[in-house]
Amino acid sequence: MEYSLRAYEYWLTVYRRVWRGTIMTSVLNPVLYLAAMGIGLGSIVKKQQLGLPYLDFVAPGLLAAVSMQVAAVESSFPVRGAIKWNRQYFAMLATPLRVGHLVAGHLLYVSTRVLVSVCLYLAALAAFGALHSWYAILTIPLSLLIGLAFAAPISALSAYADEEVFNPLFRFIVMPMFLFSGTFFPVTRIPHGLREIAYATPLWNGVDLARHLTLGGPTLWRSLAHVAYLLLWVVVGVWLARIAYRKKLVT
């Protein structure tokens, strides 16, 4: 554990140098999206048909989506850079740190980034009046789980494959997931066949649970199923990441 914290400390040190650039977008993005989608678009979405105000519907979706996006970005280029361009991982392995510590340290760092973004987001949600239940506080641990469900497998991929993979990853996986996992509209609008794919995405599981938490009234078994499914992604992701890191770093 202590060694993992040392690897984590490295990433924090880097972040401390560049956080100013990211904070602007971290604060601005949620406010902009909520204003545009929740209020602007919300004014023309028919409440009777959706069953609730659009702001209330889209807010938890965006919260889950933000966790995914932060995790995906922070597990792609930085991991590739630490192996290929700046080679910090090789420097770390020249110390008592081992591969498992590097993976754990990096995931801790991603968790921190997700946590910061999500807390800012929740504050904006509260200000917009989109939180309707004390269960909403549980979206914080949930967002960490969503973040890790993406960070772990993506860091495995980033370690294993060349940087050419990032373009298709973001454009053909992350972006469609953002748009079709129940974030902006109920997945029941998607025709059968494709809808089942949406149900299988980790993001939909995160969105659905987050929506129940902010609107109140989560059911135990459904919530447990979502959590278990997301955990599965984390566990398999970490397992793959350790294999990929070892393959690239210890030869």
Binding site: R171, F172, L179
Partner: peptide, 26 residues
């Protein structure tokens, strides 16, 4: 591939917002 992959983003938006959400907009 860099250029090709850019074709899809607006289409994804069209299907998601236009046909997905659009149902609730009229």
């Amino acid at each position: 591939m860099t250029i090709f992959s850019g074709f899809f983003e607006p289409l994804f938006y069209l299907f998601s917002m236009g046909y997905g959400l659009g149902h609730f907009v009229g």
